[in-house]
Design a protein around this nucleic acid. Sequence first.
DNA 1: ATGCAATTATGAAACTCTGCAATGAACAAC
DNA 2: GTTGTTCATTGCAGAGTTTCATAATTGCAT
Lengths: 112, 112
Amino acid sequence: MPTPLYQLKAEFFKSLGHPVRVRVLELLSVREHAVGEMLTQVGVEPANLSQQLAVLRRAGLVSSRRDGAVVHYRLTSEQVAELLAVARNILTTVLAGNVELLEDLRADDPGT
Amino acid sequence: MPTPLYQLKAEFFKSLGHPVRVRVLELLSVREHAVGEMLTQVGVEPANLSQQLAVLRRAGLVSSRRDGAVVHYRLTSEQVAELLAVARNILTTVLAGNVELLEDLRADDPGT
DNA sequence: ATGCAATTATGAAACTCTGCAATGAACAAC
DNA sequence: GTTGTTCATTGCAGAGTTTCATAATTGCAT
């Protein structure tokens, strides 16, 4: 298997590796959103949000459409919502594992 | 929704955002692998591979087990394989979109 | 023209990556 | 038991990226 393919896949995941970008994708998983709408939900500077949106656009994950003064964003594929769902499941599993660890730690009295 | 949750999700995706780490996860999607095995498949310095494995371990995506001199790695959850599959699908969609763009470009003769 | 929405430009701080050197862990040979 | 070897991990430092704020710019409507 060619190396550049792994590079491509890695770039793909990198584009998801930012809290604002994750938040945006979750908003867009529900429905199309205007930039202004997202601004109030996400709570970052407009310029910052634009930069993160640009990353998602370059990755091909979202597309934008201008309607008068406002710009609307949407997912390019519903599969992105599915990806986020699977990721959430894994995170749940992993964190559940950590909770067990914490309980083990609590039960592990060093004094006895 | 609390901000640290998005931070957590972002960290999760970040841990997938490196070609070596993607490659490792794909190998482990098939079956458990020893570090030495992966070394020959991935083609990076041992120290480098160890670092990438450490990232995956800290993220809770893989677990390791020592068997004599060699260390074996496995996925902590089969769901990781599913995640990679969904990602591959999205990437296919996105790249197909790009191919169309390229064809459009080719058909777009600026001379006429 | 003026104002509002969104994007782009730029630069400083923070973080990631990777090779090299050093360290640790298991095991065989002596 | 300790010496030598192999397998794997950790520490460190430089080079390279990413992030985010401020400032400047573009696009559209009034």
